[in-house]
Design a binder for these strands. Sequence first.
DNA 1: CTCTTGACGCCGG
DNA 2: TCCGGCGCCAAGA
Length: 115
Amino acid sequence: MRSPNPLDEAILEVVRSVPAGRLLSYGDVAEIVVDLGSGCSARRVARTMADFGDEVPWWRVVQAAGTLAEPVAFQARRLLAAEGVAVDGRLVPLERLRWRPSPTELALIRERLRQ
DNA sequence: CTCTTGACGCCGG
DNA sequence: TCCGGCGCCAAGA
């Protein structure tokens, strides 16, 4: 298994910052990482989740349509329900629970990455 | 080097 | 709503 590079670290740090019960899409994570200064994309985030997701609350990252990614849908459904998220089949209320880092939160993430 | 393969996403039909 | 088509991008074959 490959080891995480700086871009992976940035992605993982963002996902780690998502509070329980809140959600983002792969694309949202990518946007935030871009704001942090690295180039990124939804597909790139998905790859990092596939490789290193178990190090972070990966289940809070869902598809843009509010659907759970097929390969991990079963586990995600259980973990999300455990933190109070209403799961309807493969659908979750992304619009209602979407998380965006505040400027200060963003600064904190930047700080944590500066190691 | 080319071609395929995804925990993706937007647009049309 | 549910596909199909594309664009995207890095990893493997």
